[in-house]
């Protein structure tokens, strides 16, 4: 697809200069379409691909869920066990995402700005939660925090287990989105702020955060999305106890195993709505912070 996008774009000769002139006159007007024939083809392919993989299956899920009408939705959500799974999953996902926003940014900061022994190793190890098959991640956590814990921490089959597993698998997201942006930030911008009288905290709030906000938000969105969908690393450690440690993905699987596809679809579309709300909210917050100064 990349080759399609970078293929020499044939520009309609008349349209382009006029467009450029207009853009200069009103730099803040709404973005005008910049599609050339080459990139139009690229966009077309991207849309077909996206539709096949994402839009059509999602529509199918929503349609299946909608077959039973509102009653189906309500009855699924009214089920106490399902509701408990939804609140647990969303609550834990939000908690872990908030944690990642802080810890991930700090780790990225340390990796970019500080020099210490073992830094290169840490930089590589950050990706391990990405690389491990999730069930192996569950096994690793179980051996450390399970019934035979060498640390004496018995968190298996409790809500902490869910937090732990989610935190483990979502750790790299914020780190990896913030790190490159932080590397690109010029130190002299911070020095300029300091010589204008800004203290560390002010520089962080008014100079660094606005620059990092888009990256942090992107990492947070990835982290949240991964957390509400996590399955593999949880099943071993949490024990899937109804009302206590059962998450949505396990609940969906149970529905499907019982042949209750419509309920599974209803629950899935609820999660879809939640994910959308959170991602849009993150984007709004990020835009606010990025513009603040």
């Amino acid at each position: 697809m990349t080759s399609v996008l970078t293929a020499p774009a044939v520009e309609p000769p008349a349209a382009s200069p006029r467009g450029r002139r207009r853009a200069r006159r009103s730099p803040r007007s709404a973005p005008r379409s910049t599609l050339t024939r080459g990139s139009a083809l690229g966009l077309g392919i991207a849309m077909v691909w996206f539709s096949l993989l994402v839009l059509i299956p999602l529509t199918a899920v929503v349609a299946t869920a909608g077959e039973g009408g509102w009653d189906r939705y309500l009855s699924v959500l009214r089920n106490d066990q399902t509701w408990a799974a939804v609140t647990l999953t969303v609550g834990q996902a939000l908690l872990v995402t908030a944690l990642n926003v802080v810890v991930g940014t700090v780790i990225a900061w340390v990796l970019v700005r500080d020099r210490f022994w073992g830094k290169a190793a840490l930089d590589v190890v950050i990706d391990v939660p990405f690389a491990l098959p999730t069930i192996v991640a569950g096994l690793v956590l179980l051996s450390l925090y399970g019934p035979n814990s060498p640390l004496g921490v018995h968190w298996a089959f409790t809500e902490h287990a869910v937090t732990l597993a989610l935190a483990f698998v979502t750790l790299p997201f914020v780190v990896r989105t913030v790190q490159p942006v932080l590397e690109e930030l010029e130190v002299d911008v911070e020095e300029a702020a300091a010589s204008l009288g800004a203290r560390r905290g002010t520089i962080l709030r008014r100079i660094l955060l606005p620059s990092l906000a888009p990256a942090i938000a992107a990492g947070a969105a990835l982290s949240f999305a991964r957390a509400i969908s996590e399955y593999g690393s949880l099943v071993l450690l949490s024990g899937n106890r109804p009302y206590e440690t059962e998450v949505v993905s396990v609940r969906v699987l149970t529905f499907i195993e019982n042949g209750n596809t419509a309920s599974a679809a209803a629950l899935a579309s609820v999660m879809l709505a939640i994910a959308l709300v959170v991602i849009v909210a993150l984007d709004l917050v990020q835009r606010r912070v990025a513009r603040r100064g």
Partner: peptide, 8 residues
């Protein structure tokens, strides 16, 4: 290299 505050 100017050290401008890009977002302001």
């Amino acid at each position: 290299h100017y050290a401008v505050f890009k977002h302001l």
